[in-house]
Amino acid sequence: AEDTGVRVELAEDDDGKKTSIALKLWVEDHKKLKGKYKESGAIEFTFDLEKEVPEVVAQEMVESGFFHESDAKTVGKSIKDRVALIKWRRGRMASVAV
C-alpha cells in the first residue's frame, strides 16, 4: 500500500453495531501539521460509517487549521482506507455469525 505517513485507527472497540465510531488519526511527519498543532500529532474524532464521507472530514480538518490544503487528499484517502477496512471486517463478522 502507498505510504502516506498518515495513520488512522480505531479509538474504541468496534462492536459491529454502532454506525458512529471514534477514530484516531496521527501523522508520522509533524511538518504536515500546521502552526501550533505541530507539537501535537493525534486527532480524535467520530465518524458515521453510513452517512459521512472521508473527504469531507479531511476538508473539515483543513478548515480547522490542522493541515495544509495540499494534504487534504492524503488525509481523506487515509480515512477512506480505514473506513473501508472497518466495513469489510464488519461484513466478514456478519457472514461468520450467519
Binding site: W26, S40, G41, A42, E44, F45, E60, E63, F66
Partner: peptide
C-alpha cells in the same frame, strides 16, 4: 496533558493530543 478540543463550524469535535512515542517510528 496537551489535549485540546477544536470544534469545526460544521459541529464536528476534534480532540487533539500528542502521539505516543512508540507510534512515531512505527512502520
Amino acid at each position: 496533558s496537551a489535549t485540546a478540543q477544536v470544534v469545526h463550524s460544521a459541529g464536528r469535535r476534534f480532540i487533539v493530543s500528542p502521539v505516543p512515542e512508540d507510534r512515531l517510528k512505527e512502520q
